[in-house]
């Protein structure tokens, strides 16, 4: 089963780190801090897990795959994730 926010909250409770209400609030705050940093253009490095990076993309010519129409894709900023070596190793142990 896919891990969701509710699962993160329950594993914090199960390990008796916080009660449920506090865990909900803390997980929300944690995610919001990461999002705010990325929004401000800063990369977020979680050692042992990976790095969330912001990258600027230049405008480019694209095409609507449905109508075949040519269009210009505006310059934009995107978030990418680079898994850490530790995480890659853990996923390829067998």
């Amino acid at each position: 089963m896919t891990l969701t926010k509710a699962d993160l909250v329950s594993s914090i409770c199960k390990n008796e780190i916080l009660n449920k209400a506090e865990a909900v609030r803390t997980v929300e705050t944690l995610l919001e801090i990461i999002k705010k940093r990325l929004e401000s253009g800063e990369n977020v490095l979680i050692s042992g897990f990976g790095k969330f990076c912001v990258k600027d993309k230049r405008p480019r010519r694209g095409r609507n795959p449905h109508t075949g129409e040519d269009l210009i894709l505006e310059a934009r900023r995107v978030v990418t994730f680079r898994p850490s070596g530790v995480l890659r190793k853990k996923l390829n142990q067998d």
């Binding site: 089963m1 896919t2 891990l3 969701t4 926010k5 699962d7 993160l8 594993s11 914090i12 390990n15 780190i17 916080l18 865990a23 803390t26 997980v27 944690l30 995610l31 990461i34 999002k35 979680i46 042992g48 897990f49 978030v79 994730f81 995480l87 853990k90 996923l91 142990q93």
Partner: peptide
């Protein structure tokens, strides 16, 4: 306590990925 929460969050995500299962956090990413 903040440290325990951060560690728990990323180790739960890692565990799920090791088991071949995904992670889906609304508004953040999957």
């Amino acid at each position: 306590v903040a440290e325990q929460v951060v560690k728990e969050v990323f180790s739960a995500m890692t565990e799920s990925l090791i088991n071949g299962e995904g992670v889906e956090i609304r508004g953040f990413g999957s």
